[in-house]
Design a protein around this nucleic acid. Structure first.
Lengths: 259, 259
DNA sequence: CGAGTAGTTGACATCTCTCAATGCCGGTGG
DNA sequence: CCACCGGCATTGAGAGATGTCAACTACTCG
């Protein structure tokens, strides 16, 4: 049904992707020196806790465009933090229907849904060549045990994931096509802006079908809605390149805040 | 827009509802003697951790039908565990649109979305007279600090909430009206069965409008879909009383498992 | 008893989906 | 080098599902 296929093997998070340019010894990363530390796992931690995090030295991992990071049912061992690139997570129904449940960019965490059952409930695939930090969940649990501030940060991250899903539910449950696409674009714009990129001009890494799956509409409807926005003078659309001409107007018409 | 209105005051979780039959001294509850312990907060804990939980002695709290437990924006201090009764949680858009994000019955936890920002992102209202345990989040954090098994249980509960929202997203994003309503009823049936109630016959505590809001459809469509199920011989529907005549058939036609 | 709430049903409108044709682009192989 | 192919996006026409509006009934509460 979906245009995209899962054709990679499903390596574990401890393994280094074979065939990548990674040196023989795994590249290790410390949070305290990472330019994404304000957005990512350490967000909200104090210096002391950040130091504790550093002792974990996370392994880096590369995933090429089209390859999966994990599939549904895979054993859950690691949370992953995106260093660069873009991923999509999706849920699969027994009859083959796919629903994209999220897109992830630099500084975002992937895989928190695996904690509940010790195995992943979704599959996650790279939409472009992507680099991540593999954060072993067991190691993280040990490191945070006894440090309630640090523990609270983890809980906050999980709760934040719940909030993220709230807004998607809102979107899927009570918005029409234009509102959905506008909410999606405004959300992306916001996330890019937080990372220092342009909030008005960006390149979509996902297909119309993937956007549609995420927003609960068909790819043709996505395409038509893009065209409608363009005709309304709200933005210029050239395939995956988006330039928002009237960001304020877009917000005025479509920014529906939750409470 | 919505048929339901918020007309209660919004008491804090430490307070005892005025005017209820609760004795002067707050009723305290220990998890180890609770008949819901297998389903609720202690689910998956060992004896030792359960003992630690007992030392917290949660305050009971009653909320009458139609009253709110908390509203969006309220300070988050407690998670609540449902002892008896039914609640709904809902999200509000700035333009007044409401989306029900969940229904909660005995043994389920309410309010985990507040952890992220220290304030509630949703509002929660009792659909019938309801009794809860108020679980102060700070106290819980302290009690679990240093006990990674106990901490992991909390994380699991949050992750479980993420999974719950996953299936709702799946439902909202890629199912038609019959599938949505069937999935909702099968889910309810399952939850009642786990609590020792009939899986075939139950009383809905929520209106057609509330079901519709939860499932992303209008109340008339909910009503029509109930009628369709009845005509198909799948169930008998009398207002809010449901008797599933052909549970196997309902499952066969509509049970779409995630992976 | 009257008003208000909840649920059902019908008729029609509207939105999104479905199916189909076309164009564009990049990669590949003759 | 160019023809061809596959994947992605756009657009049109018509179908189908759900929303909207309205009428009616049953029930509850004051």
């Amino acid at each position: 049904m979906s245009a995209t296929a899962f054709h990679s093997t499903a390596p574990r998070c401890i393994a280094i992707e074979p065939g990548t340019a990674a040196p023989a010894a795994a590249v290790k990363t410390q949070c305290s020196t990472c330019h994404l530390r304000e957005l990512c796992l350490p967000s909200g931690m104090n210096e002391l806790d950040l130091g504790r995090l550093d002792s974990l030295k996370f392994t880096r991992r590369k995933v090429k465009a089209g390859q999966t990071l994990y599939r549904e049912g895979d054993k859950f061992t690691c949370i992953h933090a995106v260093r660069s690139g873009t991923l999509k997570s999706s849920l699969m129904l027994s009859d083959g229907r796919e629903q994209v449940s999220g897109f992830h960019i630099a500084g975002e965490l992937v895989g928190l849904d695996g904690v509940a059952q010790g195995q992943h409930a979704s599959a996650t695939m790279a939409l472009e060549d992507t680099e991540l930090c593999a954060i072993p969940y067991a190691g993280l649990s040990d490191a945070t045990a006894g440090h309630s501030g640090m523990q609270h940060v983890i809980s906050r991250l999980m709760s934040r994931e719940i909030l993220r899903e709230h807004s998607l539910m809102m979107l899927l449950g009570s918005m029409n096509a234009e509102e959905r696409l506008a909410a999606f674009l405004l959300n992306l714009s916001h996330r890019y802006a937080a990372r220092g990129y342009s909030e008005r001009e960006f390149h979509l890494r996902m297909s119309r079908a993937e956007i549609g799956s995420y927003l609960g509409m068909k790819l043709e409807t996505v395409s038509r809605t893009f065209s409608a926005f363009q005709q309304q003078g709200l933005m210029e659309v050239d395939k995956r390149h988006i330039r928002i001409a009237d960001l304020a107007g877009l917000k005025r018409r479509f920014e529906v805040r939750v409470h």
